[in-house]
């Protein structure tokens, strides 16, 4: 399954967000959408493509932990 790893936004400056993946931090550009600190997002090609709704974050992380 195509299981991408969500990261948590820890900083936003203009349209650039800093995203924490636990083991590393990466920058990604916000093209469209409202994002705030602590939101979980999916990044591809250095842009944020989707926000993981809060109530789905745990399910997503469990899936990652248990493998696919």
């Amino acid at each position: 399954m195509c299981l991408a790893i969500p990261g948590k936004i820890i900083e936003i400056k203009n349209d650039i967000a800093l995203i924490d993946y636990g083991s590393e931090k990466r920058q990604a550009k916000i093209i469209i959408g409202d994002f705030k600190i602590n939101d979980y997002v999916i990044v591809q090609g250095k842009i944020i493509i989707e926000k993981v709704p809060e109530e789905q974050v745990q399910g997503w992380l469990n899936l990652l932990k248990n493998g696919t």
Binding site: M1, L3, A4, E50, K51, V52, P53, Q56, W60, L63
Partner: peptide, 15 residues
């Protein structure tokens, strides 16, 4: 099917 049964909607939507 496969492990998609347990996948959250947002993930399925991206896939």
């Amino acid at each position: 099917m496969y492990s998609y049964a347990k996948a959250p909607e947002s993930l399925k939507n991206l896939c």
